[in-house]
Design a protein around this nucleic acid. Structure first.
Lengths: 261, 261
DNA sequence: ATATCGTATTGACATGGATCAAAGCGACAA
DNA sequence: TTGTCGCTTTGATCCATGTCAATACGATAT
């Protein structure tokens, strides 16, 4: 019954429910950036207390989303970035002819919305795959503050750059890998990101459907399903619906490098 | 013919080093950013004369590259961005197992190197596909100046964001399109970019091989070649080696949207 | 001219993944 | 309990593209 997609162990969780009951606003402010901004986010990394406080002020408001709700859609005017506090998102693009593609899955500590900066409008849809909460970062204010705080400026540039590199990796995957390699890469990537967030590397709950995985990997859902089955037969993983347990991570890694030709 | 693996050589521009000296400087300054920065580059768009001057100082030095020379390689320490003045580049990634993928083609007015910001080291190779020249933009100085000049800051953010959106489009292509659609999209994209630079939309010279096109599009070179031939049979284009003439651009566009389910 | 080398085209065949179709499973509501 | 619905698994085929191989082309050097 209880899935092990709960954090295994962590000193202080950003979304501890009892936190809202605490009377002191300082706590919530602190929670806003010091805690919530996980390793990967890094907008707040290296900031002094005072600078952090300024960032907290900027990131004042939040927004909760139910599963399947859109954070923004293609064409929406761009105003803010969104730092995911809790939850899980996908971004996707929809073509006129009905084809669509999932371009990414985002989890706590990652930033959404950077696609909108260039044209002042969002170029993809961002949808919550489970009930989620984001911090709203008004972009004009972020630019303003990062003119003042060099570290913040650089952190932001790093975040964008890493996104570019991530995309390059995905192109590589889509351009050169076969179905099983793609899925292995996907699982290892998920595992790694869950680990970073303090969850188990070996056992996790996928929030997305086979179809969404397939869309992301440039495969059909049947192909994804078959690859899962084969991995299971080969003793690499255990699959029960959306619950994945990685048995032989090295085996998965071997799949990646060791392909014909 | 010198081969590709030579250490890259720097050539200093005679004109630029001390622009403080003469009235010539005004001309060279103009050449440095007002002219060179074509529509798409936009780092200099909307800057005042004075701001432009500051940017010109920053973008002092240049570098010439011969065909097949590397501008930077995977792992090179990241120090600067490069604005392409003239020429044509590709970026690619090489995996240990020998697979590689072209992740982009860049032409005059576009910026290279942003992949390195996040990790302080470049994550791909940038290679000149013809003799080329780039402006070197030391990144620390760019950050410094963009803390001072809001417009510059915003322009830079836009450039990065557009790169993200471009990558999304490429993912879409790699994930959902069939061979002929990919090639049609590629040709239309090239045509559009040549047009932006004042070249003919209908007739151009490809700088890359079929294999490089294939790598970029996630196809084998034979498939690219066959698709070219079919386009020619259908009267959409004329192909003579690397010389392409687009006869029926609308026909190509139709290929994009009108695919079976 | 002829030889050579990288590149491109074309053909014949193989195959990985798509497609079509049918069950199976789990969650939830009545 | 039973039924429904969305999602997943599995099987049987098909086909677009990869693979292998032969040839052609264009540029350059001799």
């Amino acid at each position: 019954m209880d899935q092990s997609d709960k954090p295994t162990e962590r000193e202080s969780e950003p979304e501890l429910p009892n936190k809202s009951a605490l009377p002191i606003s300082l706590v919530t402010i602190k929670a806003a950036c010091s805690q919530c901004s996980l390793h990967e986010l890094c907008l707040s990394e290296g900031l002094s207390k005072e600078e952090l406080h300024k960032l907290d002020n900027l990131v004042g408001s939040r927004r909760k989303l139910k599963r399947q709700q859109s954070l923004y859609r293609v064409g929406d005017p761009f105003e803010a970035l969104y730092a995911i506090r809790t939850g899980f998102f996908k971004t996707d693009i929809l073509l006129e002819d009905g084809r669509d593609q999932v371009t990414g899955f985002q989890m706590a500590g990652e930033i959404l919305g950077m696609d909108g900066i260039g044209t002042e409008a969002h170029s993809c849809n961002a949808v919550a795959l489970e009930d989620s909460e984001v911090c709203i970062i008004p972009f004009a204010q972020l630019e303003h503050l990062s003119r003042e705080i060099q570290t913040l400026q650089h952190n932001f540039h790093k975040v964008m750059s890493r996104e570019l590199v991530r995309d390059q990796g995905l192109m590589m995957l889509l351009g050169t890998m076969r179905a099983e390699e793609r899925l292995a890469a996907f699982l290892l990537n998920m595992s790694q990101r869950f680990t970073t967030r303090g969850y188990s590397a070996a056992e996790f709950h996928l929030r997305m459907t086979r179809e969404e995985i397939g869309s992301y990997l440039g495969l059909k859902l049947e192909t994804v399903s078959r690859a899962f089955s084969r991995f299971q037969e080969e003793g690499l993983i255990t699959v029960q619906q959306k619950h994945i347990r990685i048995i032989d991570g090295d085996g998965l890694k071997r799949l990646l490098n060791h392909q014909p030709r």
